[in-house]
Design a protein around this nucleic acid. Structure first.
Lengths: 277, 277
DNA sequence: CTCCATGATGGAACGTCGCTCCAGTCATGT
DNA sequence: ACATGACTGGAGCGACGTTCCATCATGGAG
């Protein structure tokens, strides 16, 4: 990689791996998951397959790189040492939500009120990924694929590291680091992904229809399930209809955070089963 | 639907959707994710594409059906008392925990103690899926895909319902049902999937090499990361090397369970300001 | 018993995909 | 000036998912 020699403009601009990945992301954003084709890519970059394959091994690597780039941007947006430039987009959207009201996070740990408590940073990371998935509908699928195919790729460690640092900052004993970080990462990725999938489907099915109508239809479909086979889902359908996405997402994070703090505060000596007290 | 008329044996046995799905599962198991091809399927069933497309709309539906079948089998294995053999294996392997001390020791599957607390049932469901993923390496990917693509498909409600019932049985107030069930489902699917992916990769890279060697290499790769960029991952690499999969998985479940119970116990008693006890 | 509408089948073929091959182009070091 | 090697892009290959359609077996109507 890299001698980065300033080529002349053989075309408008020299081809580079970054340019390819950038084009891939744009293609995914505009044309959907199936829209990323080497043929479409060659046309968009005004080149041939050979040129692309010189910079990228295969399509999987290209998808990984695209995922990596988007995730890195999302994480950098709220990470301490990063450009605050990209921050605006993410946090601006994070604010006008119905967030602060009813969701009173579980601050079972001592003092969770400081502006930059580990809890808050974890929430910031989570919402950064949450928003990135909203901006790039293909991201949840790709993230899930990469997580379940090569967990030690470049993307997973990034997320794991960012979450893990805050877990450490929470005062969790080292023996629980992996468990706590895993629980957080998997919930965040899973819940954010599923939420993004909901929105994506809502948009796909009826681009103009209000989102409420879609949720209405979805929960209606759930309520129409066989009462004998799906009593729980039917019962939950109502609250799914009314829930606010971000609030619900936050509630789940706080649930896991509660578990983390409760576990290591009270149960340093065991008692993993929280059953009857 | 269908009148299920007993056709004669035009071939050895009449073609049916079930037979197709069954063949698809076997094909996935033996040839891997990429091994399921309509051409391979036609050859295996001694038929043509048209016959298959008569029973199945497209490949995605076939994959959904295969996932559905395997998940249903995994979930059904726990609810009624199915094979106790698999159960014993699960809990027996989960037992040599370095952490299980006082609180609730008796996890043996035999009737004793609290025979089937909601917690135990949740663990049983989780390990059922855990084992199913071990048996079918393609399942985690497919499950993740389906979860992030069409969350209201047939598979997700199944899992959600099974977990949800136990959440309800835990005494969680209705307002927290969705949050609690979501946290559990996403952790279980995510963690089990990632673990299965680890095993699958270990097998793929070196079928004969001992699993410990692979974990060694994997955690070594993590330790070789840049200490400045990945301090946390480096720190947990060591414990990843030594961890027992099922134990780690169980620890995460208990963490979420702790969060669930702590949240609703404190939430019911007082306001939202519980100091952990 | 015959006949045919229909459910069901499987072979051929189409369009597109990821990817490879290779002849070519251009900046650069000598 | 020219050989070199990084880099390009067009042609084409094999495989895939899917469609089309001619064909077959069956069971109800006559």
């Amino acid at each position: 990689m890299a001698t980065r020699t300033r080529r002349s403009q053989r075309r408008t601009e020299a081809l580079s791996r970054d340019r390819i990945v950038e084009a891939a992301v744009e293609l995914l954003d505009t044309a959907g998951e199936g829209g990323l084709t080497f043929r479409a890519l060659t046309e968009r970059l005004a080149t041939g397959p050979g040129a692309i394959y010189w910079h990228v091994a295969n399509k999987d690597e290209l998808l990984d790189a695209a995922t990596d780039a988007v995730v890195a941007a999302a994480l950098a947006a709220d990470s301490p040492r990063a450009e605050p430039s990209a921050r605006v987009e993410s946090s601006a959207r994070a604010e006008p939500s119905t967030r602060g009201e009813s969701a009173e996070p579980a601050e079972s740990a001592e003092s969770a009120k400081s502006p930059d408590s580990p809890q808050d940073k974890i929430r910031a990371i989570a919402f950064g990924l949450f928003d990135a998935m909203a901006d790039h509908p293909w991201l949840p699928t790709q993230l899930a694929l990469q997580l379940s195919r090569s967990p030690w790729g470049s993307v997973t460690p990034q997320i794991f590291e960012n979450i893990g640092r805050q877990v450490r900052a929470l005062g969790v004993p080292e023996g629980h680091w992996f468990t706590a970080a895993s629980a957080l990462v998997h919930y965040i990725l899973g819940a954010a992904g599923q939420n993004a999938a909901n929105n994506a489907s809502a948009r796909a099915l009826a681009p103009d229809v209000d989102r409420a109508e879609f949720l209405d239809a979805a929960s209606q479909a759930w309520e129409d399930l066989d009462p004998d086979d799906y009593p729980f889902i039917r019962a939950v359908a109502a609250q799914v209809r009314e829930h606010d996405d971000r609030e619900q997402f936050l509630a789940g994070i706080d649930l896991v955070l509660t578990g983390i703090t409760a576990l290591h505060l009270s149960g340093e000596q065991g008692g993993t089963t929280p059953s009857a007290t």
